[in-house]
Design a protein around this nucleic acid. Sequence first.
RNA 1: GCGGGCGUAGCUCAGUGGUAGAGCGUCAGCCUUCCAAGCUGAAUGUCGAGGGUUCGACCCCCUUCGCCCGCUCCA
Length: 504
Amino acid sequence: MARMDDIVSLCRRRGFIFQSSEIYGGINGFWDYGPLGAELKRNLKGAWWNDIVHRELLGPDGQPVDIVGLDTTIIMNPKVWVASGHVGGFNDPMVDCRESKGRYRADHLIALGAAEPGARLYVYVEGDEEQMAKAEKTLAKYERRDALDPARHLRRPFTMLSADDRARAVGPHAKEAGTLTEPRMFNLMFETHCGAVRDEDSKAYLRPETAQGIFVNFWNVVDTSRVKVPFGIAQIGKAFRNEVTPRNFTFRSREFEQMEIEFFIRPDTANEWYKFWRDYRFNWWQSIGLTSSNLQLREHDRDELAHYAKEGAGTSDIEYKFPFTDPGYGELEGVAHRADFDLKAHATHCGKGDKLKYFDQEKNERYFPHVIEPSAGADRGTLALLCEAYTPDESRASKVFMKFHPRMAPIKAGIFPLVAKDGMPEVGERLFRELRKRWTIEFDEKQSIGKRYARMDEAGTPYCFTIDGETLTTNTVTVRHRDTQAQERVAIDQVAAYLGDRIV
RNA sequence: GCGGGCGUAGCUCAGUGGUAGAGCGUCAGCCUUCCAAGCUGAAUGUCGAGGGUUCGACCCCCUUCGCCCGCUCCA
């Protein structure tokens, strides 16, 4: 497998991806797409939107699947994030241990010790029987007694401790007391303020997922779009998470773009729709070029399911084996049965409750639809396309070429006069003008033909058309294939049709 | 946020307490009738940033920023 460093180098060198604000030293967790990268990512998003929203897609019952698009704001009423659980659950208080260098979720720590102030406290991670037993044993030993007295020895959440208490607390992996820092909040949502006054009331959040924009608009869409369950709402947009540790190139970024579908269904059809979306989405990634064994579909075990999916039809990840995750995999897309968690939460929090239940004309009943959510990362998808395409080849001049699926390729074709004379540039330019009405095309008459082919290899351009001496007499050009370097001749007035057949 | 490693041209990397280098790439000209050919020439670095030590710092020290690995996190 190619080294990630080499892929990052090529991305930089050829203008796929740059570090954000690079001339100021960069900023951790933010990335810019250069000319080729912007095209690549647009192609990915365009294919997704086209295949999900525009094209006919047949569902499990053989009927066309109904999906409409949506484009909602990044900043919403902060109550949205209270209802979704992000304000309560997306803030993690963390504690570091100066002695053991460990880091813990503060709300997972329990302090065990005598009730009176000044007593020594032993801290363990909630649910860890071994650590708890060790804490109990150490405390008993410290107090020179045989067993703990449940009336005297309290178990308190670490987050409740005062500074004095913490000074007497011994960490799970420490011997000294007072090595645990005070809990620090890691707020995973970016905050901002709306309006001129900067106070608690003006606080707002940059959305950490696009999904909630869809859920809060569910009723608007139902009222205006003549859709009926089962149907889906699709959205592409930026989301923001203040990750503790951005890592692995663009894989974990603080600003990223999601491609999400919320597909609303009758609760009793969850299983079939879940399986449908899981399989459809897995096949879709393959259809745009992720055909190697690096792509896999992984069903979640019950115990790793999110709180909203515990009782549902299931959750699965579509994963890609990136060079930096190898031999493991990284998530490209999650397909989850979210049940009616979100619609219900918003109905409750906005105060309208059951009045917001969907009325099913056909079955003559009211219910909150269940949701199957295929949620994909546009940046992760782009990164997977780059990793998949990267193909070292010592035999060719560039030493590497990008084997993009033609539909994803940033540049669809190069038009090259073999030499810049004898009227070849003029013929080439006419062809260039014709083709660029429909596709991204590059025209280049400079330098040797080999050099131009090599540049296109690194850009991942699938086809190059070269105007040569024969063109002037027979009206044919050569097509040079990126993957095989093979050439064939095609009539110049057939080039557009030739590309059309192969580019989608 | 902690520990370890790293930061020199667009890329990959040498380098020494005493005037910043190579290969590749990029650009220009000549040449060239199918794969980075050849020849000639050109541009680009506050040696990540800021302090300090020194007669003198890319080199030694401190701080800071960024990257990589591990811990942690990833409802």
